[in-house]
């Protein structure tokens, strides 16, 4: 309820027939060769299951219903952060995270300045990489190769759980940004953010290169590449 702009749950609750109709509409592929193949999927789940077939089918239908509900909420209801245009503006609310994650394109007249920024980023990356612990290098290398941090071989090599790697990654990223903001306190915030992104991307590439010389990690990355057929980089 916190994600959509509704205060009363009863306003969005569907009756049982309506809910099942929603599921049918959501899951059926119209004008397809086998538009109701999802029903085969539902009943195929019972094969080899120790649970009663009815429970298995019901569990599968619940999974599918979550997807149908998500689509229904996306289409029919506004997000909780939606503000009416008629409401007097008390504060201009833009999504600062969106602006930081998706800045505008670089001004083409600033090519020289951008190269200077990249060179400065490389210097910072040099310093940070030298002090980077092995586990963090492994995490960044895995990210560079789009290897899931939950890969069992990776976790065994790192000697920790998946949540630890995720936490370490996030904590390190935030530390890089905070350090640079502190170091360049008087500079333009957006430029500092650009520098931090360049530093982090440079570090990630260095960790990818480092992983190529680490036999144990390279085996894991190569093994994942053989199985997967190689996911493309974004």
């Amino acid at each position: 309820m916190n994600t959509i702009n509704i205060s009363d749950v009863s306003l969005v609750t569907l009756s049982d027939p309506d809910a099942w109709h929603l599921l049918e509409v959501h899951m059926t592929l119209p004008d397809a060769i086998h538009g109701k193949a999802y029903k085969e999927w539902l009943f195929a789940r019972t094969a080899g299951s120790p649970d009663a077939p009815f429970d298995v089918v019901q569990g599968g239908a619940t999974l599918l219903m979550r997807s149908a509900v998500r689509e229904h909420l996306r289409r029919e209801h506004l997000p909780a952060t939606h503000v009416s245009a008629n409401q007097p503006p008390t504060q201009i609310t833009t999504a600062p995270c969106c602006e930081e994650w998706l800045p505008g394109p670089l001004d083409t007249r600033d090519t020289v300045e951008h190269r200077e920024l990249q060179s400065l980023a490389a210097q910072h990356a040099d310093r940070l990489f030298a002090a980077l612990p092995r586990r963090l290098k492994m995490t960044l290398a895995a990210r560079a190769c789009q290897l899931p941090l939950s890969t069992p071989d990776l976790l065994e090599l790192a000697g920790c759980q998946c949540s630890t790697l995720h936490g370490a990654y996030r904590e390190f990223a935030e530390r890089v940004f905070d350090e640079l903001r502190e170091c360049y306190r008087g500079d333009d915030r957006d430029t500092v953010s650009d520098l931090a992104v360049e530093v982090f991307n440079d570090l990630t590439q260095r960790c990818g290169t480092w992983a190529e010389n680490d036999n144990a990690l390279q085996d894991i990355l190569q093994s994942a590449g053989r199985q997967d057929g190689g996911g493309a980089t974004v």
């Binding site: 998706l102 800045p103 505008g104 394109p105 670089l106 001004d107 360049y184 333009d188 430029t191 650009d194």
Partner: peptide, 17 residues
């Protein structure tokens, strides 16, 4: 040390949306 000033155009509103 002062950072080289890098200007950016306005974000693409379609991409932001």
């Amino acid at each position: 040390m002062t950072l080289p000033r890098v200007n950016r155009d306005q974000p693409d509103p379609d991409q932001t949306a």
